[in-house]
Design a protein around this nucleic acid. Sequence first.
DNA 1: CATGTCACG
DNA 2: ACGTACGTGACATGA
Length: 560
Amino acid sequence: MWGVSFSIEPGRAAYVPFGHDYLGAPAQLSEQLVLGKLKPILEDAHCKKVGQNLKYDAHVLRNHGIELRGITFDTMLESYVLNSIGRHDMDSLAETHLQHKTIRFEDIAGKGARQLTFNQIELEKAAPYAAEDADITLRLHQLLWSKLQRESDLVKVFAEIELPLLSVLGRVEHTGALVNARALAKQSDELARQILELQNSAFALAGHEFNLSSPKQLAHILFTEQGIPVGKKTATGVPSTAEEVLQELAHDYELPKVLLEYRGLAKLKSTYTDKLPQMINSSTGRVHTSYHQAVAATGRLSSADPNLQNIPIRTEEGRRIRQAFVAPEGYRIVAADYSQIELRIMAHLSGDEGLLYAFSNNLDVHKATAAEVFGVPLDEVSSDQRRSAKAINFGLIYGMSAFGLARQLRIGRSEAQKYIDLYFERYPGVRRYMDNTRKLAAEQGYVSTLGGRRLYLPEINDRNPMRRQAAERTAINAPMQGTAADIIKKAMISVDQWLQSGGCDAKMIMQVHDELVFEVKTESVEQFRAHIIQLMSSAMSLSVPPLVEVGVGANWDEAH
DNA sequence: CATGTCACG
DNA sequence: ACGTACGTGACATGA
């Protein structure tokens, strides 16, 4: 931190520098003095604060021994709640809402390798830049808040979900996750050996060396040198070497088989086993992700640097990476996830009797769907029928087309259409809900979640059928994905409240869309389990209560 | 910086 | 004839 800027009145702002140390920098107040004077104000919950992305400011202040309190408004979140589509950074907001082009950081610091850090920037340049941030933020707040206040649903989303969540996420990020770097390093070594072997086999099969990671070189070898017929093409019209294509070719050729294995292992190594250890913070010994609260249009969070929401799970080798997410001595990893949350939401939103029946009687929902669609008794559903029903259920959540289902199940389009028709015959409430949703979306120009969150669909009445249909699929998907996001966010807030009040020796360490991960004192695990199930399943009341499944283990893999 | 690919829910 | 399942982030390549 090199200084602090403030504004208490639109059009006026101040910058208090304390760390600029370029050659010839003027004398400044000391950091100790400035932060010492500010600390009581920043920590006073009655002194209300407005900021842009205050989760970040709170982190910086926390690292300087100040606990920011009185967080009342955040312009980034106000903008996100008003319209979740698009960017919510200050520069974009100033441009759209105030018709004001802000001073860009590049303009005062330069760019590239020679870019200056803020302490190296002359006060004559630094002060207007920093003060502008404060002024713009206050002005944006006044504008965005007055817009927000016209929509009581959105005020609720802001005040009851996004604003309290900001501080919860700050604590989760600050806690971080403990990662066993030694275990990952060992996996990297083993992967390196296997990758080298696969590379040599690939060279032998190709008859020469090449870069296995280059889709371009690979496509040349497969489709030109070896004359293999081209399957799918990419968006730009070049022959695709995507997994799906290689999978198909692997029936008849050896090289694609080797490449698939190479791709799988290379991904694990470069993205996870090599990278995660480098991301461990040397002072905490943990990885600290950033949860982005204003990125996903549906209301979900996203995770970055590192992304902890895409740690492998689907393959055995992948799961070894989860084993490196461990509990500290005396603690256990507890993972609590919502079971079939989006389908349960669909049952609630549609009010479909058959679907509600399946959930309230705790049936295997995919099996129940199969029994209905294929007209067989529950206990005679084959594994193949269940697999098809599962694809149908996912398809429904995604705003399915016969084309998409056919491709997923590798069946003909008319057969896929038959399945869809049968489904809607058996679950007429779902069809009614889908039709209503499309209609409502077309009338209003947006769809809503149970929590009151909105997703605008500017292309819902587009004359281009492709665009319009894409918007219709979003209209179907967003209320379910977004309601699931509302539910887990509310759960996080109440769980955090319980933990903050000293409820249990436990810390929340991750959120993965329908799952919360904790580290819990070993002796407290059973008490914790009961509480977490109660808090998560009552986060929002549905006609089929959310079912929460809890796992416990020494690491994240074991906790599943 | 665009592209292709692939990890997750 | 075309091209579509929804939502993300990160990596390597190559211009």
